[in-house]
Simulated assay, not measured.
Amino acid sequence: MEETISLKDLFATLRKRLSLILMITFTAAAVSAIVSYFFITPTYQVSSQLLVNRSQVEENFNTNEVQTNIALINTYKELITKSIILDTVADELDGSYTATDLREMITVQGGTDNQILTVTVEDTDPDTAAAIANKVATVFEREVPNIMNIDNVKMIEPAVVLDTISPVNPKPMLNIAIALVVGLMAGVGLAFLLEYLDNTMKNEQDIEKELGIPVLGVITRFDLSELEVAATSSGRKARGEK
Rank of each mutant, 00 (worst) to 15 (best):
L50R: 04
M148E: 14
I80C: 03
E59L: 05
T120V: 05
T98W: 09
S55F: 09
I73T: 14
V121M: 00
T81F: 03
G111C: 05
V57E: 14
N60D: 14
Q115V: 03
D151C: 04
T68D: 10
E78C: 07
D91S: 12
E78A: 13
I80M: 02
T118W: 01
F140A: 05
N62E: 11
D151E: 12
N74G: 13
T100K: 08
S48N: 12
P145V: 03
I73N: 15
L79R: 04
P126V: 00
D123A: 09
D123V: 00
T138M: 04
T112S: 15
V136M: 09
T124G: 05
S83C: 04
T100G: 08
V108L: 03
Y76V: 02
G110F: 02
I116W: 07
I150G: 11
D127Y: 13
T75Y: 08
D91P: 09
S48C: 12
N134F: 11
I73Y: 07
E58M: 07
V139N: 10
V108P: 08
T107G: 13
E141F: 02
N134T: 08
D123P: 06
T98R: 10
D123C: 03
L117M: 05
A133H: 02
V52R: 06
N69M: 12
F140S: 05
I150V: 12
V57N: 15
I85H: 09
I147R: 06
E122T: 06
V57M: 07
I73E: 13
D151N: 14
I116V: 14
P126D: 06
T98Q: 12
E58C: 11
D125Q: 05
L86P: 05
T88D: 15
L51E: 10
A129W: 00
A130I: 03
D101A: 11
T124R: 00
I85D: 07
K135Q: 14
T75S: 15
